[in-house]
Write a protein that binds this DNA or RNA. Sequence first.
DNA 1: CAGCATCCTGCGTGATACTG
DNA 2: CAGTATCACGCAGGATGCTG
Lengths: 125, 125
Amino acid sequence: MAKARTVPACGCPVAAFQKLISGKYKLRIVWDLKDGPRRYGEIRTGLLRGMPGSAEIAPRVLSRELKALTESGLIDRKDFGVVPPKVEYRLTRKGRTFVPVVAAIKDWGTRHLAEARAPEMVAAE
Amino acid sequence: MAKARTVPACGCPVAAFQKLISGKYKLRIVWDLKDGPRRYGEIRTGLLRGMPGSAEIAPRVLSRELKALTESGLIDRKDFGVVPPKVEYRLTRKGRTFVPVVAAIKDWGTRHLAEARAPEMVAAE
DNA sequence: CAGCATCCTGCGTGATACTG
DNA sequence: CAGTATCACGCAGGATGCTG
C-alpha cells in the first residue's frame, strides 16, 4: 500500500486532507473540473495558464495526479476507447462536495496573499 | 531566492495556499493555536497526539515549520528571553482569518474521508 | 491524443548530537 | 526548554523518448 510521505496516517482529518491533495496540481485540477468534464489535454492546457513562461507539465506528473485523484474517489475517468484516444475526467459526487472547500481556499488566498495580483483581477475571478 | 518546489509561483491563489501550508504540520499547528498561545513544547506534544505509536517529531522540522509560518505572517513568535527558555507562538490577525478555512477542511475531511474514525468522534470533535 | 518507461535531481523529512 | 548542526534518505517532480 502507498505509504504517505507528507502526512502521517493518523485519524486527523486535516492530515488526511493534506495527503489527498498533496501534489502540485491536484487542487487546481479539481477546480478546473468544477465546470464540467474535461479531456486530458484540456486539463494540461488549463494548468499551463498562469504558469511562468516556458514551463511545461511532465505528462508523467499529470498522469499520476489524475490517477491519484481517481483512486481517492474525487474524480472519475471515462475512456472512450477510440483512436485517436479520448479520455474525459470529471468530478464524482464526492469530488463535487469538495469544490466549496477549494472555493474557500481560493477565496482566502485571493484576499490575503494575492499581493502579486492586481485588485481588479481579484474582483473579476 | 527560494524556488517553490511543491507549487509554482503563479498568481493562482490556490497555488499560493498550497505553498503556504506545504509541510507536514503547518495546518495542524494553526489549528492548535486557534484556542490561544502555546509554547514550543506544547505544540510538539499536541502534534504527537494522534500520531502512530513510536513517532517522534524532529525538532528541526517543527522549528522550520514554525519559522515558515512566522515568515508567512500567520503566526507570531514571542520570546520571553528567560532561562530556562520560554517561547510562545500565537496566531496573528491574518492567521485568525485562516482558521475558518482550516475548519472547512477539517469538516470536509471528517465527513468524507474519516473511515478510520469512529462516528461518535466525528460528532464530538 | 493520452499516456507509460526510464533516468535524474532537489527538497522535505527523519535521526542523532549538541548548545545558550 | 527551545532550539541549531550535521548526516542521510526517499519521493515528488522534471526531462526525454516511445507507444497503442
